[in-house]
């Protein structure tokens, strides 16, 4: 996907969010740290452009809720900011890539500590498969079949699939650590 493809997918998702929820009245958009945050901000902007809705935008770091916390070093990348009480609201959780589902599982637990949302919907730019938990997205930019050992990268330059070992070497990360999650 090139940047235009990503933009078009995001516009479609914005329309789908509005359609599903009959407008954006109770919607709160929450981006997952770190890949989902920029997408969440763009989605909120699109909701404003399309519907004139002012939708609160938060960011969530799930480090303290992960299930692999004692298996490998887990540290938050940024401070969580949820601008409103989520009780009674519809949360649209945004992430760049949906893979094993473990991050989303942690995010659902984390959201619960910010109030009892009426519903949580999941929007992802890429669904790459290989789920390890019964989690499915509500809004998908693109379904992208991958091998487990590949790495999907969503950035301003669009979406790219890389060889995981090469990518990790670039980022100076030990490959074994990322074997079972993202």
């Amino acid at each position: 996907m090139d940047p235009d493809d990503v933009r078009r997918a995001l516009v479609r998702i914005a329309h789908e969010v509005l359609e599903r929820n009959h407008g954006a009245g109770d919607v709160v958009v929450v981006g997952l740290q770190s890949g989902g945050v920029a997408l969440a901000e763009r989605l909120v902007q699109l909701l404003a452009d399309i519907d004139g809705a002012e939708v609160p935008c938060g960011k969530l770091d799930v480090a303290f809720y992960r299930d692999d916390i004692s298996i490998r070093p887990v540290s938050p990348e940024e401070v969580t900011r949820i601008p409103v009480d989520l009780t009674g609201r519809v949360v649209v959780l945004v992430d760049d890539v949906l893979f094993t589902g473990r991050t989303v599982r942690a995010a659902l637990d984390a959201l619960g500590d910010h109030g009892r949302a009426r519903a949580v919907q999941l929007a992802v730019m890429i669904d790459r498969g290989h789920r390890e938990l019964p989690i499915r997205p509500d809004f998908v930019g693109k379904n992208l079949p991958t091998r487990r050992d590949e790495l999907v990268d969503v950035s301003e330059a669009g979406v790219a699939i890389g060889d995981m070992v090469e990518r990790l070497a670039e980022r100076d990360v030990a490959p074994v650590d990322l074997e079972d999650g993202r």
Binding site: F64, R81, D113, H114
Partner: peptide
């Protein structure tokens, strides 16, 4: 930030 929440507790 965790300490400011209504439920200031994480399962870490």
């Amino acid at each position: 930030e965790v300490s400011e929440r209504e439920i200031p507790k994480v399962p870490a």
